[in-house]
Amino acid sequence: MSAAILSLDHATKAFGGLIAVNDLSFSLQDGELLGLIGPNGSGKTTVLNLISGALKPTSGSISLGGTEIAGQPAHKIARLGIARTFQLVRILPSLTAEQNVVAGGVFGHVRSWGVEAHDRARLLLERVGLSGRGDSPTSSMTYIDQKRLELARALAANPKVLLLDEWLAGLNPSELKIGIDLIRELRNDGISIIMVEHVMDAIRSLCDRCVVMSSGLKIADGDVHGVLADPEVIRAYLGDDHA
């Protein structure tokens, strides 16, 4: 078994009295695709925000390949090799598609600049299915294309760990199939990924393992099929009657 590339140890985040993430521990193995699931409001996005440095944990530790990153500012964490997409897609509207992707690689943990960065950006655009669209203004892009662009930007940093926050949400069935195939390819390339997702089909077909959260607590962690059959997980999603 390979070593853990990212691990959370008793990570806690409180907003005033509300404890959004409560004493959470799990780890991501190198090259693994981990699903982070749970009902709305269970604290999944907060976990991604803690890992990427958008929020500082109240207590606990988070380490990336042995380096402590808990409480570091977002730009430092990005430079250490963690890239992310956002729940509500965030495109840089005044830049072209290609520049959007270049932006991901210039300041990240592998830094490229100039012609080389643009060449890489074109390759990544091709990879996410946007070949030849480098010069198009981003405002005219469809939702899935914007999501693809955001993914290409995250990949431009050549990340050790990729965080996908509901990257598949809002896609129609045919787009969803394309999206799932794309993520599968990334995993086959050896990128370690944590995906927060509500689309269960995607979780089933993609993930090696998944962690389930409810009200800030981890309630299950393990093989996808086993976890989804766990009565406690079903109760968390559907209420007591279905357990």
Binding site: S52, G53, F86, R90, L92, F107, H109, A157
Partner: peptide, 12 residues
Amino acid sequence: NDETVAKHVGID
């Protein structure tokens, strides 16, 4: 364009 994105692509 977007300061949050800027931070997350590694800009101080």
